[in-house]
Amino acid sequence: MKHEVDGMRDEVAPACAPRLVARGLKKRFGKRVVLAGVDLEVAPGQVTALLGENGQGKTTLMKLALGVLAPDGGTITVAGFDPLKQPRPLRERVGFVPAQPDAYGWMNVRDLFRFLAPQYPTWDRAYADALVAQLRIPERTPFKAFSRGEGMKAMLAAALAPRPPLLLLDEPFAGLDPLVREEVLRGVIGELRGSERTVLLATHDLDVVARVADRVAILAEGRIRKHGTLEEVLDVGGRDGASSDDAVDAAARSAPAKLRDALESARRESREGREVGVVP
């Protein structure tokens, strides 16, 4: 089916089709099995939080989605493309923010844009400039002199500038001090507000999940243990104590409870008029 996305006419999945579909996805590094058969669908226009503790395979799943890693089994399609066979159209449609800013140390944000702009047919220079201003990213400071927060904001701006229909965020808030974390989070939320952009957000930050996620997938022991809307996952979590599924590990069992607390906290803040600010 022909589908036009941001001016590009290509063979892509229909608009209502899931943006990311993984079926029995497996990946191991040496003897260590990281993904043992992940089944996941990321619905379009929604923010799906991929929740899991460190080392559960969230980054690996992201890399598989980008075609940077090759799976050992199963299949994955992103925006209707096979990451290994069709990496180019796929990456043109996917924005990615890594857990650590990994751009060249000598680059400043302008250099980064100069390098990346020719790579993306949909690169929006004006939008990129606006993001730099809105996120208050130093323009002439090289990455090696950036704080971690500034680096993450620069990477976020670079990921958003092509206006990709799918955004993959790999723990972008991890390790940030609270103020910067709040600033980056506002940037993300502001970008998502009113847009139809699909987001897969890998995190173990339950507060972030509570504030931005429409759906939650819990990754533990190499599999998606729970997947649904926030409310569905919370309900499942409520029944979890009665569950006979012993394979669900402690993290997966405890996450819904923490999530409920975080959600309540976020709603309380909202009721008290401390709703988070947004980037216009």
Binding site: R91, L116, Q119
Partner: peptide, 8 residues
């Protein structure tokens, strides 16, 4: 990894 992720 940064290079790998570029669409080119």
């Amino acid at each position: 990894d940064f290079l790998r992720r570029t669409p080119g």
